[in-house]
Amino acid sequence: METGAGTIRAFWARHRRLGTALIVAFCFLTGLGTDVLLRGPGQSDWWHLTVDAVVAVSLIWRRSWPWGVLAVTVAGDALTDGMLVAAFAVAMYSLAANRTLNEATAGTLGSLAVLGAETVHRSGRDGLGTFIFFYGVTVVASVLIGATVATRRRYVQALLDRAARLAREKEQEGLLAAARERARIAHDLHDIVAHNLTVMVRLADGATAVADADPQRSRKAVERAAELGREAMKDMRRLLGVLHDGSPDVPGDLETLIETFRIAGLPVTLRGRGPEPASPGLQRVVFRIVQEALTNALRYAEHPTEVLAELDYSSDPIRIAIVDDGRGTAPAPSVGSEQGLIALRERAALYGGTVEAGPQPVGWAVRVSIPHQTEDLDELDE
Rank of each mutant, 00 (worst) to 15 (best):
D212P: 04
W47N: 09
A357M: 05
A147Q: 10
A178N: 09
A225Q: 14
P317C: 00
A87D: 10
I8L: 15
P41I: 13
Y351F: 09
L175T: 04
R217S: 09
A211S: 11
G265W: 02
A167R: 13
P215E: 15
A177S: 13
R347T: 06
E338H: 12
E171W: 05
Y135I: 01
D161K: 05
H190D: 08
H121L: 08
A357C: 06
A167W: 08
A211D: 05
Y155L: 15
L160D: 09
Q283K: 13
P317G: 00
A226K: 08
G326H: 02
I320V: 12
F134E: 11
R230F: 09
T148P: 01
A194L: 15
N102D: 13
A104W: 04
L266T: 02
A321E: 13
R202P: 00
L197N: 13
A25F: 05
Y155F: 10
S279Q: 04
E276H: 12
S247E: 12
V366N: 02
S334K: 10
L37D: 14
G129D: 15
R152V: 08
P275Q: 03
P41V: 15
P317K: 00
R345W: 01
L175C: 03
G336R: 14
S334G: 13
H15A: 13
S123I: 02
A25E: 06
G124V: 02
A225T: 11
S111E: 04
T80M: 00
R152S: 11
T138G: 11
Q291D: 07
T198F: 14
D376Y: 10
Q216V: 10
S314A: 15
A13N: 14
R319A: 13
R288F: 07
D235S: 11
S218I: 04
R345H: 05
V143N: 06
A147I: 02
G326W: 02
G110M: 06
A204I: 07
L380T: 06
L166F: 04
R16E: 15
L59T: 04
Q283E: 13
E2W: 10
A25Y: 02
A177W: 06
D249T: 07
A71W: 01
P331V: 06
R16H: 14
L308Q: 03
P277V: 08
P317W: 03
S314E: 15
A71K: 05
T151S: 13
M83G: 10
D188Y: 13
V323S: 08
T3H: 14
H48M: 07
F134T: 08
A204K: 08
V156H: 11
A309V: 04
W67C: 05
V85Y: 00
D312F: 00
Y135H: 11
A221L: 10
A71M: 07
A365W: 03
T151H: 11
I145L: 11
I318V: 07
L239T: 03
P359H: 13
I258M: 01
D205M: 14
N98T: 06
L311F: 01
G272Y: 00
A147P: 02
F26D: 11
G107T: 05
Y300T: 03
S94D: 02
M236P: 00
T374E: 12
P280A: 12
